[in-house]
C-alpha cells in the first residue's frame, strides 16, 4: 500500500470555501446585478489512506464543487485542500497521476475508439510500465468481464459495459485515490452488485481509497464505513453509518396487528403514528430496546401479530437535510 509513505491524512480539507459570482437580471432594472453564491463554505474533513467514504448530499449541496477542488480543476476561493500533500489546483498534472475519476454520467473513454485503443492511449498518458499495464488490464478485464468488448468502439457499448470500461480506465495506473461520482446510476441490480463487489475487493486488496458520491444509499450501505453528509455547502454529519442513524434521531417502527379494532395503544416509550383498522404503527427511538414495548403491548392488548421495521437510511438523511435547511 503506497498510501502509507506520507504521514498525515491522504485528503486534508480545511475551512474550504468556494463562491461564484452570478449575474442575475432583476425585474425593472436594466443592468444585471452581480450576486455571490456560496457553493461550499467552512468545509473541513480528512480522509486516511484505505478508507471508503460516502460523500452524500442533496442536489446542489456542493458535492461536485468539492470533488472539482479535490482534483484541482476548480480553484478554491478560501481555505486549504491537500491531497497526498499536494495542492490540487497548483499541482493538478502531478496529482492526476495518482488519482482516478469515474463519472456515472460522462465517459472518460474516447467515443470513436475501440475500448482497447482507449486503454492503450491511457497507458502512454500515465506512462504505465508495459508489464504493469498488461497485468492490470488482464485482471480488470477478467474481473469486470470485459473480454468480449475490448475491440468494440465505445459508442456501441451498453451503459453497463461502458461503466465497467470507465472503471478499468480509471484504475489502470494504480491510483491511490479514486473518486466515483454516481458510478451505479442507470445500472441494473445485477450490474450494481457486481460493481460494488469489485470496488470492495479493490479496496481490500490494494488499499485504494474511495470517495463515493451517490444518491443510491445502497451503494453507501454496501461500501462505506464512513459517511460525510454535506448540505448547503458544509458538512452536517461525518461519522459511521450506524452513527448516522442515531444522529438523525431515527426511529424504529413496531407494527401491531390487534385481534379487534381499538383506540390508539398507550404504552410508555412509544408513540402511535398511524391507526388503520386493527393495525397500528408505533414508533420508538432506534437505540431503545423493543422488548419492554412489545411486552407492555402484549400485556394490555390482544395481539394477533407483531413486526418491527428498521429505520430507513433515506429517511434519516432526509431528516438531516430538512433540519439543515
Amino acid at each position: 500500500m503506497t498510501a502509507d509513505h506520507t504521514s498525515g491524512p491522504l485528503i486534508d480539507v480545511r475551512d474550504l470555501e468556494r463562491t461564484f459570482d452570478v449575474r442575475r437580471r432583476v425585474e425593472g432594472r436594466r443592468r444585471r446585478t452581480r450576486e455571490q453564491v456560496v457553493a461550499v463554505h467552512d468545509l473541513t474533513f480528512s480522509v486516511d489512506g484505505g478508507e471508503m467514504v460516502g460523500y452524500i448530499g442533496p442536489n446542489g449541496a456542493g458535492k461536485s464543487t468539492t470533488i472539482k477542488m479535490l482534483t484541482g480543476i476548480l480553484v478554491p476561493t478560501g481555505g486549504e485542500v491537500r491531497v497526498r500533500g499536494l495542492d490540487p489546483s497548483r499541482q493538478r498534472v502531478e496529482l492526476a497521476r495518482r488519482i482516478g475519476v469515474v463519472f456515472g454520467q460522462r465517459s472518460t473513454l474516447w467515443w470513436d475508439l475501440p475500448l482497447r485503443d482507449s486503454f492503450d492511449l491511457l497507458q502512454k498518458m500515465y506512462r504505465i510500465s508495459p508489464a504493469r499495464y498488461r497485468e492490470n488490464l488482464d485482471r480488470f478485464v477478467d474481473l469486470l468481464d470485459l473480454g468480449a468488448q475490448l475491440d468494440t468502439p465505445v459508442r456501441q457499448l451498453s451503459l453497463g459495459q461502458r461503466m465497467r470500461g470507465d472503471i478499468t480506465a480509471a484504475l489502470l495506473h494504480d491510483p491511490e485515490v479514486i473518486y466515483l461520482d454516481e458510478p451505479t446510476i442507470g445500472l441494473d441490480v445485477v450490474s450494481k452488485g457486481r460493481l460494488r463487489e469489485f470496488l470492495r475487493a479493490l479496496n481490500r486488496e490494494r488499499g485504494t481509497t474511495l470517495l463515493l458520491t451517490t444518491h443510491d444509499l445502497q451503494d453507501i450501505e454496501a461500501l462505506c464505513d464512513r459517511v460525510i453528509v454535506i448540505d448547503h455547502g458544509t458538512s452536517v454529519y461525518d461519522g459511521t453509518l450506524a452513527g448516522l442513524h442515531a444522529q438523525g434521531g431515527s426511529t424504529r417502527t413496531l407494527v401491531v396487528d390487534l385481534v379487534d379494532e381499538a383506540p390508539p395503544i398507550d404504552v410508555p416509550g412509544a408513540e402511535v403514528r398511524k391507526v388503520e383498522g386493527p393495525r397500528q404503527w408505533l414508533s420508538f427511538p432506534s437505540d431503545a430496546s423493543a422488548a419492554p414495548i412489545v411486552a407492555a403491548v402484549a400485556a394490555s392488548y390482544a395481539v394477533a401479530d407483531l413486526s418491527i421495521q428498521e429505520p430507513d437510511i433515506e429517511d434519516v438523511i432526509r431528516d438531516l437535510y430538512s433540519r439543515g435547511a
Partner: peptide
C-alpha cells in the same frame, strides 16, 4: 457539454 472536466483530470496539458 462540460466534458472538458475529463480532459482536465488527465496528467497532460
Amino acid at each position: 457539454s462540460g466534458d472538458v472536466a475529463i480532459d482536465l483530470y488527465r496528467p497532460v496539458g
